[in-house]
């Protein structure tokens, strides 16, 4: 990354938004970071992906520590998911370093839209039932 005061400020602000969304939604925040690092910071796709994962480590640890104190984390489930996750991540990262991921991204996008719409609809029903 080429250092300039303006860019550093923007990167820190984006980092803030990433941390906030990550802990609120239980996601890594890479969906914001990867395009940002490619388009604004000027990193290559692969370096942006690796850097995103690196940032996610401390961010998720801090977010989880607050969720743990509030009693929202299920450690037994987290361990099982994490065990599968490590295998998946190693496979996925090796694959990413070798191929163009475009068709996979589109498949993933459709999945996310369908499940997102369903989740929002359930939330709407819950709120309507509560009011």
């Amino acid at each position: 990354m080429e250092l300039s005061l303006g860019l550093v400020l923007v990167v820190v602000l984006v980092g803030f938004a990433v941390g906030y969304f990550s802990a609120l939604f239980g996601v890594g925040g890479g969906v914001i970071m990867v395009p940002f690092m490619v388009l604004v910071v000027g990193l290559t796709q692969h370096t942006a992906e690796g850097t995103s994962l690196l940032v996610i480590i401390p961010t998720a640890i801090i977010g989880v520590s607050v969720h743990l104190r509030k009693g929202f984390v299920s450690p037994a489930k987290g361990l099982l998911i994490g065990a599968g996750g490590v295998v998946g991540a190693l496979l996925g990262a090796s694959l990413a370093l070798r191929i163009e991921e475009d068709s996979l991204t589109k498949t993933f996008a459709l999945f996310v839209i369908v499940f997102g719409a369903r989740t929002a609809f359930q939330g709407w029903k819950l709120r309507r039932a509560a009011s």
Binding site: S22, G30, S52, L53, G84, L90, G92
Partner: peptide, 13 residues
């Protein structure tokens, strides 16, 4: 989640 995370550099959440 891990496959997606590793593939796209995201968490997979």
């Amino acid at each position: 989640g891990g496959l997606l995370g590793g593939l796209l550099g995201v968490g997979g959440g």
